[in-house]
């Protein structure tokens, strides 16, 4: 592995080390939504407002792991002309200032071949890849391809993941372990599960990489709750996509400001002492 090839994984690990917050703040941005230019501005606004890592979504025709808000945003992004090249350009631009993990469904990774996809992603300077519909162990060629180019293949675990699989997945995780807080798809929840601390503790015990929690987190209170429960990072997605979808913000071409304001609140919440 060359020096440049190692940077993706290394850069992600540093991102969790020194955030000045109770946990790393990891906003999700749908690539190409409402347009490619807007999604770049939204990402930049997130960085300004305190994002430590950006999770960039590749819009997909059949996003099985996503709830209705992110699904609709992806559909709209595709209708507006978003494609792989365009979204990877957003990844490249954001990577200049923040570690970026791309969330991309498996069929798009396999379309050009896992090796070609990973190489192309690495060339943008992005750090990680999340493939939400690729079960651990189903496609070793994807992890090999990522390893080759220093991209962290970030696995997902859920409350339903069995202890045996959790051990295997935790050991294989690169970058961070994406821990799903609830059983189900992405989307805001009024309350996080009561067993959140258990879910996080189980995840942390399985791995040496940071544990980031996602699915269902929308408010500064929930973000702090996750941090207090031991999460190293907090992923907020649907709440931000909803802010970007707000008709008033859209009318004023101000989706970035709308998202930035929400990220700012989350960041301030996480920055407060316990």
């Amino acid at each position: 592995m060359s020096a440049t090839e190692a940077t993706g994984i290394a850069r992600l690990s540093v991102a969790f080390a020194d955030t000045g917050k109770r946990a790393a703040l990891m906003p999700y941005v749908m690539g190409g939504f409402p347009t490619l230019e807007d999604s770049l501005r939204i990402g930049e606004a997130c960085v300004q407002a305190g994002a430590d890592v950006i999770e960039l979504g590749m819009p997909y025709s059949d996003p099985l792991a996503d709830g209705p808000v992110i699904h609709a945003a992806g559909t709209q992004a595709l209708a507006a002309g978003a494609n792989v090249a365009g979204v990877l350009e957003v990844a490249r631009a954001l990577s200049a200032s923040v570690p970026v993990a791309l969330m991309c469904y498996a069929n798009m990774v396999f379309a050009p071949g896992a090796a070609a996809f990973a190489e192309r992603l690495a060339r943008t300077g992005a750090c990680g890849l999340i493939v939400p519909d690729l079960p651990y162990g189903e496609a070793p060629e994807v992890s090999e391809a990522c390893e080759q180019v220093g991209i962290a293949l970030i696995p997902l675990v859920a409350p339903t993941t069995t202890p045996e699989r959790l051990v295997e997945i935790g050991a294989s995780a690169r970058g961070f372990l994406y821990t799903v807080s609830v059983v189900g798809t992405t989307g805001e929840r009024r309350a996080l599960g009561g067993d959140l601390a258990d879910v996080i503790a189980r995840a942390k015990a399985s791995t040496d990489v940071p544990v980031a929690i996602g699915f269902g987190i929308a408010t500064p209170e929930q973000a702090c709750q996750a941090a207090d429960a031991g999460a190293d990072g907090v992923i907020v997605g649907t709440r931000l996509v909803r802010a970007a979808s707000d008709p008033e913000a859209a009318a004023q071409h101000d989706a970035a400001a709308a998202v930035g304001a929400v990220v700012g609140e989350l960041s301030a919440g996480l920055a407060q002492a316990r």
């Binding site: 059949d62 099985l64 792989v84 469904y105 069929n107």
Partner: peptide, 16 residues
Amino acid sequence: ILHGSRSAVMQDEEGQ
């Protein structure tokens, strides 16, 4: 890959 299995699928160049 569609709905959890790998098979014949109508898709575009990028895998949509």
